[in-house]
Write a protein that binds this DNA or RNA. Sequence first.
DNA 1: AAGTTGACTTAGACCTTGTCCAATGTAGGA
DNA 2: TCCTACATTGGACAAGGTCTAAGTCAACTT
Lengths: 138, 138
Amino acid sequence: MSDLLERLRGRGWRMTAQRRVVAEVLDGEHVHLTADEVHARAVAKLPEISRATVYNTLGELVSLGEVLEVSTDKRAKRYDPNAHRPHHHLVCARCGAIRDVHPTGNPLADLPDTERFGFTVSDVEVTYRGVCPDCTGA
Amino acid sequence: MSDLLERLRGRGWRMTAQRRVVAEVLDGEHVHLTADEVHARAVAKLPEISRATVYNTLGELVSLGEVLEVSTDKRAKRYDPNAHRPHHHLVCARCGAIRDVHPTGNPLADLPDTERFGFTVSDVEVTYRGVCPDCTGA
DNA sequence: AAGTTGACTTAGACCTTGTCCAATGTAGGA
DNA sequence: TCCTACATTGGACAAGGTCTAAGTCAACTT
């Protein structure tokens, strides 16, 4: 975690209490939080932090490549701190829980030139959908 | 298209002018429209149709499996009438344009049991991202 | 063909997620 | 320590979507 803060400082980030708190929240638990959840947890540590700052900071972390934005469902975007190891997602259709997964194979190679329509394809995102063990029982 | 209407009638759908219009819009052009775009086109054919009805009807078509919801970008959901042939999507990162694509290989088979965490995995969705020919020049 | 009824539609208020801005505060270099 | 450019704040705003109460009408019944 202090890794993350160090890295950010090295990139010219001005270190503020707010940014530190947001970084801590993301690092704290390896889950995929929505912006509002990040805000709620940040408020618990630093009551006067504002929503705008959380959005700003998340946006900056995303553009620095430290955090990934995941929009699996129609609702809020979620933020994935595990940006440094490529992975895909497994989403529960009932409760929205997300797990990181590592499929074999390379889907980028599975898209033939004839199916690229002149696009410069740079990235691929795979989302598996199903029902998680907790929801299967219900 | 009348296929679609027949199928829906057979499933107990009450046939109304509004639903017919929404179905026609989706069938008319093979593109991926947002709910608002569907509404705009529906209004052109039936001026008094309301936004709520369009949303309701789209939602019903989705749960009946006649239409797919695609949420590629953070903005509006898009609706894909091509629900009966499995396919994936290629999205332009600049302008948001979407194309249907058919990769080789089967990503579902690429997710080993050890990576399923007890989930009942039923579906996989692959989104390729890149820049389309129109936006590459700019 | 007319009556009946519950599904469908409507308009608009409301909610959620996210963005923007002007005023204010502050980290870190000089 | 002082300065100032960068960061934060709170509140207004916007877009996309949902909900509700009241009215309408498709299709079944007779």
